[in-house]
């Protein structure tokens, strides 16, 4: 069995990074938050901020790796057909939306959340979770298009 090619290594790193990001968003927004919201009459600052602090390095590492490996994959095997270019553009757009929402969350939502009252925090975090659904949707789209692009 021959060692994996550089393209295979990049592809694995790309997919694992994207899966880590999408999985973190899925877990936080669709599994954790509904349960936490139901069992906590007040806003659980310690839990949510603690979770946010832990997820921060993982998500930004994932964003960096997705971008770097994506550029590497394009360089190693540039898409030549129209459909492959369109798929790549779609992936790029999905990535841009995800990264933009994430950056907005870090720079705007989380600083406000840390100083909010419980009532304000519920509203802020509710809006953050709704944006997380968009991130999740874009992530699933990007992964699906990426798998198709890899087979094409």
């Amino acid at each position: 069995m021959s060692p994996p090619s550089p393209e295979t290594v990049l592809r694995i790193a790309h997919v694992v990074s994207a899966s880590m990001w999408v999985g973190a968003v899925f877990m936080a927004s669709m599994i954790d938050w509904p349960v936490i919201e139901r069992i906590n009459p007040s806003f659980p600052f310690e839990l949510i901020v603690g979770q946010g602090r832990r997820v921060f390095p993982a998500v930004y590492l994932a964003i960096f790796l997705i971008g770097a490996t994506g550029v590497g994959l394009i360089w190693l095997s540039p898409p030549l057909e129209g459909s492959a270019l369109a798929a790549l553009a779609l992936k790029g757009a999905a990535f841009a939306v995800m990264a933009g929402i994430t950056l907005y969350g870090t720079l705007v939502s989380w600083p406000k959340l840390q100083l909010a009252t419980a009532a304000e925090a519920k509203l802020l975090y509710g809006a953050y979770i709704r944006r997380a659904y968009v991130v999740f949707g874009c992530g699933v789209l990007g992964l699906a298009v990426g798998i198709w692009l890899g087979e094409a």
Binding site: A24, G52, V55, V59, T106, S109, W110, P111
Partner: peptide, 14 residues
């Protein structure tokens, strides 16, 4: 006397 106190918020979220 004269000490400086700084409040910082955590970098969080994603």
């Amino acid at each position: 006397d004269g000490a400086q106190i700084t409040i910082l918020q955590a970098l969080a979220g994603g």
